[in-house]
Computed example of a mutant assay.
Amino acid sequence: MIVGIDHFVLTVASLEATCAFYQRVLGFERIDTPGRPTALAFGGQKINVHEISRTFEPKAKAPTPGSGDFCLITERPLDEIRARLEANGVVLELGPVERIGARGPMMSVYFRDPDGNLVEVSQYLR
């Protein structure tokens, strides 16, 4: 019935700080459309970004900056991801560590964005 995720929403303290972080650190594309939430696009998905003072309806019952915890998949070597994090002053919180994802075993690194959301970047083991 369900085949994937199109987007999810992050509620943030600062739209500008969050977008700059994901653009710089992970290479996301920022999309601004009048009357719509700002989006950060990557692959075939996106993250809609709601600033806490400017949310869009409908929304989560109690949107809060820093409450996100999600995993992103990469095809790049994790050493490359780690180097990019380090070059951008992002502290690696954990990893690489082995995890089990939706499609099987993977190696993951964890870090936090400007709001404290936990971001996991993973590469499936072949």
Score class of each variant (00 low, 15 high):
105 P>N: 05
82 R>H: 06
97 V>R: 06
125 L>M: 11
26 L>K: 04
35 G>I: 04
104 G>R: 08
84 R>T: 14
26 L>I: 06
61 K>T: 14
73 I>P: 00
10 L>A: 07
62 A>I: 09
15 L>V: 05
2 I>Q: 09
40 L>D: 00
63 P>F: 12
25 V>M: 12
41 A>L: 05
48 N>C: 01
15 L>T: 03
69 D>T: 09
51 E>W: 08
125 L>P: 01
20 A>C: 02
86 E>Q: 13
24 R>D: 08
1 M>Y: 04
75 E>Y: 06
70 F>S: 05
10 L>S: 03
59 K>I: 03
43 G>E: 04
36 R>E: 15
114 P>Y: 07
109 V>I: 15
99 R>H: 07
31 I>S: 12
92 L>Q: 15
87 A>S: 14
64 T>D: 05
18 T>M: 13
63 P>A: 09
23 Q>G: 03
25 V>H: 09
104 G>D: 08
9 V>Q: 03
22 Y>W: 07
46 K>V: 00
98 E>V: 07
2 I>N: 11
8 F>A: 10
58 P>Y: 13
63 P>T: 04
103 R>A: 12
57 E>D: 13
100 I>F: 12
38 T>P: 00
17 A>K: 15
89 G>V: 07
115 D>W: 07
81 I>T: 07
54 R>K: 14
47 I>K: 00
18 T>F: 05
89 G>F: 10
112 R>H: 11
123 Q>E: 07
78 L>V: 10
72 L>A: 02
56 F>D: 09
79 D>G: 12
45 Q>M: 12
91 V>S: 14
91 V>H: 10
29 E>P: 01
78 L>Y: 04
85 L>C: 15
29 E>C: 04
74 T>G: 12
20 A>H: 08
112 R>I: 10
55 T>Y: 09
125 L>R: 12
46 K>A: 13
5 I>Q: 08
20 A>S: 13
98 E>W: 02
7 H>K: 04
2 I>P: 01
22 Y>I: 06
93 E>W: 06
118 L>R: 10
19 C>G: 14
21 F>W: 10
43 G>V: 03
80 E>A: 14
67 S>T: 14
32 D>K: 08
107 M>E: 15
126 R>D: 12
41 A>T: 05
109 V>S: 02
23 Q>Y: 01
11 T>G: 02
120 E>W: 02
60 A>T: 05
126 R>Y: 03
94 L>W: 06
119 V>K: 00
17 A>P: 00
112 R>V: 11
94 L>P: 00
8 F>L: 09
63 P>D: 10
18 T>I: 11
78 L>G: 01
112 R>A: 13
72 L>R: 01
115 D>T: 11
6 D>F: 01
61 K>I: 10
15 L>P: 01
19 C>S: 14
114 P>R: 10
106 M>Y: 03
42 F>M: 10
6 D>V: 07
